[in-house]
Computed example of a mutant assay.
Amino acid sequence: MDLPILADSVRLADDGVHILDRRVFPARREWVRCATVEEVATAIEDMVTQSSGPYFAALWAMVLAAREAEHEPEPLAYLERAGERLIATRRTNNHLRKAVHAVLSTVDENDLVGSALAGARAGDERYRSRSRALGAFTADLLPANSSVLTHCWADLYLVELVAAARRAGKTLAFHCTETRPYLQGARLTAETLAELGVETTLITDGTGAAVLAAGRVDTLVTAADRVTMDGHVVNKIGTLGLAVAAHAYDVPFLAMVQAPDRLAPTAADVPIEYRAGAEVLTAAGVVHPGIRGHYPAFDVTPPRFVTTVVTDRGAFDPHALAGYYEEEP
Rank of each mutant, 00 (worst) to 15 (best):
P143V: 15
R67I: 00
F305M: 12
V270P: 11
R216N: 08
A190T: 13
L141R: 12
V227R: 06
G169F: 12
I19A: 03
L172A: 01
A35V: 06
P296G: 10
R262L: 08
E178W: 00
T308Q: 11
G119P: 15
T222D: 14
D261H: 14
S115E: 14
E70H: 07
A43F: 02
V113Q: 03
R292L: 05
F305C: 14
R121K: 15
H247S: 10
E125M: 06
A7N: 13
A43C: 04
E279S: 07
H288M: 01
G114F: 04
A57N: 01
R262K: 10
L79Q: 10
A186N: 07
E45K: 14
G206T: 01
V287N: 11
D124C: 07
R128Q: 12
A173F: 10
V300M: 11
E84V: 08
A136R: 13
A66G: 06
G119C: 05
P143E: 15
H151E: 14
R29K: 06
C34N: 07
Y324A: 02
T266I: 05
H95S: 14
A248M: 13
A214W: 05
S146L: 06
G285S: 09
I272T: 13
S105Q: 13
E68A: 08
P181R: 05
L3R: 10
R187A: 04
A315K: 08
L202H: 03
A168T: 01
A13R: 10
P302C: 00
T36Y: 08
A66P: 09
E160Q: 14
V257G: 13
V100K: 08
A213G: 11
D8P: 02
V221W: 08
A61W: 01
L196W: 03
R128A: 09
S129N: 12
A66D: 08
L240R: 08
L156H: 13
E84D: 15
Y55D: 07
A297T: 11
V251M: 11
R187E: 03
L59F: 10
A88R: 08
F25L: 06
V227F: 02
E38G: 13
R126M: 06
S129P: 02
S131P: 11
D225T: 05
E74F: 06
P302N: 00
Q50H: 05
V103K: 13
G123F: 01
